[in-house]
């Protein structure tokens, strides 16, 4: 799961002190001049973020031959092909698996882990574990992907060797070469890489819970698990909700780790939307069809994006 995905909304803030824009005629020119502060950002984002995405939809209604440069309008044919392409459904399924498993480990698992760590007596220990678990998140997915490519290798890999050394020879297999296990192996790597980051975020959220609540609960005789469920969990629910949405968004943008570890194989069993887009657009010459696949990613991320907006608004956190 991309570190960036987790970042991209991990942050909300309290009451915005919005300022009333009072435009007296005297200062109208000055007010207009203040556009200079945002001009660079607006141009950059408009040109390189919004415009290509619009262009993508135009490309998706065409059939392009990259060699001759011929472009023909095909209307919605590429979208029709999407519906009948079994690999698109495999990809959607894999992306969804990614989302569900990541929610289990990187949201709920990370929450529990953060609670355990924050429950430790010594501050030095807490800092130590948070940092240790975070290390994989600081390393490029390309590196961790390649690393796990080796770990899963039958001849030199750690995993099969470890299984053999504890007598589980029956489980030994080419993890990335078997269509049944390839995508799970990739997702497992992603959990290994990403859980430390969300643990850190939850740890910070837990630190913000007023201590008095716990003191009061202890006086009432509530045990650790009771306090976890009636104080820690409800008071970090906002964070949890946000993390779920971010995790889903990230899961539908997965590209790097799949590309590095299997490139979608074997037999397209570990294909995700991002890699199928690459395969179609850049390997099979179907720019138009690739753009239509990009359209699917757009719709999913847009829906989760809007969900995020609404969620943060409901929580009285506004832009």
């Amino acid at each position: 799961m991309a570190v960036t995905g987790v970042n991209s909304g991990a942050v909300t803030y309290g009451a915005a002190t919005g300022q009333g824009a009072s435009g007296t005629p005297r200062s109208r020119l000055r007010n207009l001049l203040s556009f200079r502060w945002v001009a660079v950002a607006v141009i950059l984002i408009g040109w390189f973020v919004y415009y290509p995405i619009v262009d993508n939809f135009i490309v998706s209604t065409t059939d392009q031959d990259i060699f001759t440069g011929e472009v023909s309008d095909v209307g919605l044919a590429n979208y029709d092909r999407l519906l009948h392409d079994p690999v698109v459904w495999t990809s959607l399924w894999n992306n969804s698996l990614y989302a569900v498993i990541s929610i289990v480990f990187q949201v709920f698992g990370a929450f529990l882990l953060a609670a355990i760590i924050e429950g430790l007596g010594s501050e030095r220990l807490r800092r130590f574990w948070r940092a240790i678990y975070f290390v994989p998140s600081a390393i490029s997915i390309t590196v961790t992907g390649l690393l796990f490519y080796f770990i899963y290798q039958p001849e030199i890999g750690l995993l099969d060797a470890a299984l053999r050394s504890v007598g589980l020879d029956a489980l030994v297999k080419p993890w990335l070469g078997d269509p049944k296990t390839a995508i799970y192996a990739i997702i497992a790597m992603s959990q290994w890489q990403g859980f430390g980051y969300s643990t850190l975020l939850f740890a910070i959220a837990i630190q913000k819970i007023p201590r008095e609540l716990y003191d009061a609960a202890i006086i009432d005789g509530a045990g650790p698990s009771r306090r976890l469920w009636s104080i820690t969990f409800p008071l970090t629910r906002e964070m949890t909700g946000l993390m779920i949405i971010i995790t889903i968004t990230g899961a539908f943008q997965v590209f790097n780790e799949v590309m590095v570890m299997t490139a979608g194989g074997p037999n397209n069993s570990s294909q995700v939307l991002g890699t199928w887009l690459y395969q179609q657009g850049f390997i099979e010459n179907n720019f138009g069809y690739g753009a239509a696949i990009a359209g699917v990613i757009f719709v999913v991320t847009m829906v989760t994006g809007i969900a995020q907006l609404l969620y943060t608004r409901r929580r009285r956190v506004q832009f």
Partner: peptide, 16 residues
């Protein structure tokens, strides 16, 4: 406009 850019993913823009 600026914050809406948060919702758009690089993957979607790559072909254009």
């Amino acid at each position: 406009f600026v914050l809406g850019g948060l919702m758009l993913s690089p993957t979607v823009a790559v072909i254009p």
